[in-house]
Design a protein around this nucleic acid. Sequence first.
DNA 1: TATCTCTCAACCGACATGTG
DNA 2: CACATGTCGGTTGAGAGATA
Length: 303
Amino acid sequence: MSRVLNGNTNISERTRDKVMEIVKQYNYVPNTLAKGLASSRTYTVGFCYDYTEKQAVSNPFFQMVLQGVEDVVYRRNFLFLMMSMQRDQLDASSFAKVVTERRVDGVLVPTQLFTEAVHSLLLREGMPFVVVGEPMFAQPGIHWVDIDNVQAAMALTRRLIDRGLGQIGIVYDEADKTKDKFVLDRIEGYRRAMGEAGLQAKEATLERLRGMSGNGCGGASQALIFSTESLLLDWLDEADEHPPADSIHLATFDRSPYHRHIKYGVESIEIELETMGIEAADMLFALIEKTELAQPYIKIPAK
DNA sequence: TATCTCTCAACCGACATGTG
DNA sequence: CACATGTCGGTTGAGAGATA
């Protein structure tokens, strides 16, 4: 039965037809638990999210990544399990439970949650894993997938420079900068593009920007790049009181569904989050199936 | 004799049940 | 009480039988 259903070639047409007839007659569907018992597989992969971040799951960018992951998972006839994790209470989280009880064959961990404690737990349990986003700490043997944020920021900055804008500032959130590698990379990409063009880089936190008059880094910027779209939205929330000057070009990375509610023209660069999900899931399946990988990480260029 | 196809049975792991 | 055995339902290796 299993040889027929799993496409084994050494089966005669006659036997195959006979088996398929019985499958049809009894509406036979293999029991995944029994299959897992025989193959030491769960046919499930996990994705963890931050329990303390209430908007983690509803975040549209997170959902775009998930969409890519799910496409791959369902194509492989696997199931997908969402697990919560509390960074400061790892042992009590459902993530730790799922990993230690081997309820999944592999896990995807967002870089914000990938701490050294998480890494050692996964190594100890021999659980295949892929980090979604470049990890904040480097260790050999860690597989990860990320957007090439340096390249994306360079491309966006160059686009503004090509428009003849010479005074371009970048705005970031201090807390994001310490926990999100991609924010550091975007700042780095911006600096490089400005440096190449012989222009002076101007950086400010949102807090500092709020305190400035004229809505610019130093009050003289012609364009402002926001390191994340949510930061731009936060800033625009306050725009009723201090609307940005018409002469200021706004720019950020990617577009969430909320983007269409923005009343101002915003330049953005496309970040392929769905592709990131697809690549991460493909990489995880390669690790589960012990397939040789060409490289331990993938950086997806922005368009 | 070589190759193809089929059948049998061990095995997977956790838990329930039986036996001494 | 401790240990042995059975149970679930697939997968898969080994070996037997059929056929060219």
